[in-house]
Write a protein that binds this DNA or RNA. Structure first.
Lengths: 326, 326
DNA sequence: CTGAAAGCGCTTACAG
DNA sequence: CTGAAAGCGCTTACAG
């Protein structure tokens, strides 16, 4: 059996109340001498606080639930990593679930989080009709969307200016002399990729609109088909790095030179993009800042002043010279 | 305030004990008619069980802690994803922490898990002197290592036959006519990469032993240096896919043809390896099976009969023809 | 088959 | 500054 506060109290010759006051630094003051005795007793007994018991009484479990569409996708992996970092920094434990882009699983995951009495929920939406953040809030649990909010939801969303990112990508390809610039979007026009598409549309490049699922495999298949039909664009902005990796793989497999025959810019800016072959020029989203904003909103902070904007990172795939590998 | 069992009991005209029996399907039988009334009342009130309260009483929190060295590394990302899947299948919630290859953080993470009264902990060790699994077991919490156990630990480890995987990789490169085959290892020879190295040594290829940290950046730097010094091997087995991705990036940046000038085989077999440029031939570890074994051991199952062995997946980087993109 | 009650290990008003 | 006690929402022997 694990040591309890009662045992610590007995050894320190005081009450559990005082032990709690010492270990929590409040809410009542404790004499320095008593305090030292309690600390020593806790140390001697190897006391570890039972957070489940504390949670039941205090109403705060110290758990935050995070639902991601797919933790293997480099963008979500990186976002998840940043969230875990930000959450750890504020003393929360990160509970994760993958929705596999399935709205039903996403709702199940949030339902499980609520039963576990999480202190908050962060969801990167998989789209669909359900609004799990609204549901969490209905259960008095703080919740925010990060990156993607389902269509129609009015819940809090932390996201960068996605349209601006695509505009930046288009302008960069133009600076390389490209006029017709295609765009590889997702299956539908909701969410962040919809915004990125809107930015591309506004830039009026006259290039083709391409679509694939959000997997490298799907993007690779599409690209292989385009190459076979001789319909590959000369310049292409790709909505996500995950898809861009698939495009690169297909181009390499078919012997199509990047950037020579196909100039490419990605719109996520994941760590993966630096070490593709060739390295991927991206409009890099401020993942760490986004995670920080999401966590602070969850903790009750007001909306941030700071705008979230992507930054152009020039690498090889657009036609710029290969930068030094770091 | 959330609905409690007491409210459900009142509405159903029965006691909280009976509500608990119904909702948990035991441990006492309940008359069909009473059962129906309880279910209806719970439904009407939108009752959601408070698992924190249940945990305090029953001793099972439904939480399992997972510590990974780096959830952005494709191997650990894939392993984490499979663990989450296996854990969800048995009704557990997955709490994650990243150690960033820092043994101290790893121990802190496990300490946090124990305070949260997790039902078990799975750690992919970052190496070092600490034995967090032993620590968890000392606190009566089931715990296992997956993939990597720190040197000197005698705790349960779920891992495939890593030496056999490298032998397989070497043999495959030999079948392409290579004799001297180099090996890119990690900074030290502990853990799974140590086993992979042992397999390569046993295969006595006479090739060079190379080393880098377990990041794509480090492997890319090493490779760029080798190319500059004109010391790049013709054939290379790389301990991890993460490093292989770095090698590929450096080769591409320097215009070194793969597999023409450098034939490559990776030893993890992550999903990422299928869409590198060129696609990476690997000895693919049975990640899903490994995750399943780890979870079952945690739940108290005896060691599995089934041996965990990697499977050779032929793709382009070794010199085989590029397979059809899936 | 059902219910009153103890108790899991904390936190926190309340009284002293 | 300190302590006895209530209570968070469950689960589960125990008695009926």
């Amino acid at each position: 059996m694990a040591t309890t506060m009662a045992e610590v109290a007995r050894r320190a010759g005081t009450s559990v109340a005082v032990v709690s006051y010492v270990l929590n630094d409040g809410p009542r003051p404790v004499a320095a001498e008593t305090r030292a005795r309690v600390l020593k007793a806790a140390e001697d007994l190897g006391y570890r606080r039972n957070r489940i018991a504390a949670a039941l009484r205090s109403g705060s479990s110290g758990l935050v639930g995070v639902v991601l569409p797919d933790a293997v996708n480099p963008y979500f992996a990186a976002l998840g990593r940043e969230l875990e970092k930000a959450l750890t920094a504020v003393g929360k434990l990160t509970v994760v679930a993958n929705s596999a882009f399935d709205p039903a699983r996403q709702s199940d995951a949030v339902e499980g989080f609520l039963a576990a009495q999480v202190d908050g929920v962060i969801v990167v939406s998989a789209g669909g009709d359900e609004d799990p953040v609204a549901r969490a809030r209905a259960a008095d649990t703080p919740a925010v969307y990060l990156h993607h909010r389902p269509p129609g939801s009015a819940a809090v969303l932390v996201a960068p200016d996605n349209a601006a990112a695509t505009v930046m990508a288009v302008e960069h390809l133009r600076s390389h002399g490209h006029e017709r610039i295609a765009f590889l979007a997702g299956p539908d026009d909701h969410g962040p990729v919809g915004r990125r598409l809107a930015g591309w549309r506004a830039a009026a490049t006259g290039g083709a609109l391409l679509r694939s699922e959000f997997t490298r495999a799907a993007a690779a298949r599409l690209t292989a088909g385009l190459i076979a039909e001789n319909e590959l664009p000369r310049a292409l902005v790709v909505a996500t790095d995950e898809q861009a990796i698939g495009v690169l793989a297909a181009a390499c497999a078919a012997g199509v030179g990047v950037p020579g025959e196909l100039a490419l810019v990605g719109c996520d800016g994941t760590p993966d993009a630096e070490f593709t072959a060739p390295s991927l020029t991206v409009t890099a989203q401020p993942l760490s800042t986004m995670a920080g904003h999401a966590v602070r909103r969850l903790l009750g902070a007001p909306p941030e002043e700071e705008r979230l904007v992507a930054e152009l990172v020039r690498r090889r795939s657009c036609g710029c010279p290969q930068p030094q590998l770091q």
